[in-house]
Design a protein around this nucleic acid. Structure first.
Lengths: 332, 332
DNA sequence: CTGAAAGCGCTTACAG
DNA sequence: CTGAAAGCGCTTACAG
């Protein structure tokens, strides 16, 4: 591998001058700069990142932890994060799924292989996480957030989102809804259920416990839960799924059972992933501003890397209901 | 940040000894090792990766370039690659989409920020790629491959896959098929079309040019192409889409147009992504062994990193047709 | 504006 | 088995 010393030799300058040419804001004469740049091109020089990192303490790489990529929400947020970090000139190391990866990402900060980490999928307050925060490791929680934890967080108002759905259903006379949720460990699913159930109760149509189904955020579970909901003795007239993936499964189950959507049953999802608007699903869903979440997370992480001691920021994005064909009514 | 010198001080040994404790196969007495390990734990030591990289020339990180994550094929292969590299103890830097990212990944090898790169989405023979190969940069092409390029490649036999579909359709009397393909730049789509058209001609039912539709690999394009195919004056009785995502769009278009699948038209995809088996699509498709591709690519890249000068290996995986409800017949 | 030199935190011959 | 020392390839005060 050719290094800055080789370039220096070729250009007839010192190694330090080569380094200065690469560092914006350092004084180098135009003539010298030109000679060095030409030498760099001639020998095919690329600065060694490990050496730069060792001197500067910055890697130019951030970490991102995503959950299960079979949930289209994660590819979409990963895509948006990729664009944003790319724009900022950062590389992105990705850890996919399973909770052990959260700790791997935190370890990476300590080992100096990333400058900071975005978590899209925190499920609980681990001691590792607390340790990282005490060490002022730059990290941002996006999507799944943790109440009472003092760190940068970007989420949407899941409670309000759940309430939105309750309002909409009751307003249109759908007073016997079921709830199909993700794992209770997911703070997103918790919030959506809470907002939904609370508002239903306020409106005089409390959600009965046997109409609450919870499991992993998978198509299969959405399908299975819907099959059970349709099987129940008392007729369910609508289903609120705590994400789109579950709703796709629910729609498929309804289709298999010969239950018409929306004639016999209304189905509502959460996220507004690209697929929600596909004709196969045409899903009414609570829209999350995925690109907005990614943009805010990126901005916050980069700011945090600049100033690890700054006060933590919490961003809550608004969500809104997008009405499509899996329910029959336009909003009032 | 605590370094190995701090640990040495705490353990009452030299810094070199601390380093030896971390390096398997180096002689350290049990007593010393124990003292050092205890000191490491006490001070919360983590070795600095940039320093290790500078000495060893290895980063322990590989790069992966994926295209558009809205195509479920890519999340699936990314997932599989993530598992495989994780198992091997490597971190994974991901570049998402657009062809400029291929060059960014090649640059990363030269800068020493990754030890090697897996490309899932090469579209053409760029000079950058050739330069990288001359430099013996460790890289593997998976999924999209390049004939005549001397480097490690893992693909499936797209020509045979296309022929498989032609055989199947003609055997069941579907002799007026259309082809909906991805961008002609994608070697995958090229091969599938080639195999399909060639076999159709051999069977006496040549594919007419006005029944060939090509565009980006998106749901929208699958939809639009199907709409045009259904609109054509001469009746198309079947459609072969060069990936599942296009086929999902095609199914949605048929659904919107009131064209029954498979009664009026048969639809076949390629990939066998998870979604292909969802009830909404129930898609007959050519199955690619995605996990097998990822496993082979990982194995080959790690071997290449060990020995950059070894002869290149080309792996071609078999594909097979998975019959589902978007076509009516079980295989003969 | 430019060079000589120190040092980031490791690994690894070289002695002992 | 262990220590002292060199060096990986940069950045950045310190002189001039």
């Amino acid at each position: 591998m050719v290094n800055s010393r080789d370039v220096a030799r070729a250009a007839g300058v010192s190694q330090a001058t080569v380094s200065r040419v690469m560092t914006p804001g350092t004084p180098v004469s135009d003539a010298t700069r030109a000679r060095v740049l030409q030498a760099m091109a001639a020998v095919g020089y690329q600065p060694n990142l490990a050496a730069q990192t060792m001197k500067t303490g910055r890697t130019g790489t951030v970490g991102v932890v995503v959950a299960d990529l079979t949930n289209p929400f994660y590819p979409q947020i990963l895509d948006a994060l990729s664009d944003a970090f790319d724009e900022a000139g950062y590389r992105m190391t990705v850890w996919v799924a399973d909770s052990a990866k959260n700790d791997a990402a935190l370890l990476a900060i300590r080992q100096g292989s990333v400058d900071g980490v975005v978590f899209t999928t925190v499920t609980e307050t681990s001691s590792e996480l607390h340790g990282a925060l005490e060490r002022q490791s730059p990290l941002v929680l996006v999507n799944r957030t943790l109440a009472g934890v003092d760190c940068d967080q970007v989420g949407s108002d899941n409670v309000a989102g759940g309430a939105l759905v309750a309002d909409y259903l009751v307003r249109h006379g759908r007073t016997r809804p079921a709830f199909i949720g993700g794992t209770p460990l997911a703070t997103t699913s918790q919030g959506r259920l809470h907002g939904f159930a609370t508002r239903l109760a306020e409106l005089g149509h409390p959600l009965s416990p046997d109409r609450i189904f919870q499991g992993e955020y998978t198509h299969r579970n959405g399908y299975a839960a819907m099959a059970r909901a349709l099987d129940g003795s008392d007729a369910v007239d609508s289903v609120f799924c705590s994400n789109d993936l579950l709703a796709f499964g629910a729609i498929d189950a309804a289709r298999s059972a010969g239950t018409a959507v929306p004639d016999d049953i209304w189905i509502i999802g959460y996220d507004d992933t690209d697929m929600a608007s596909w004709e196969s699903f045409d899903l009414t869903t609570v829209r999350q501003d995925i690109a907005g979440m990614a943009g805010a997370a990126t901005r916050m992480l980069l700011a945090r890397i600049q100033d690890p001691a700054a006060p933590a920021e919490q961003v809550v994005l608004e969500s809104r209901l997008v009405i499509r064909g899996s329910t029959a009514h336009q909003p009032a």
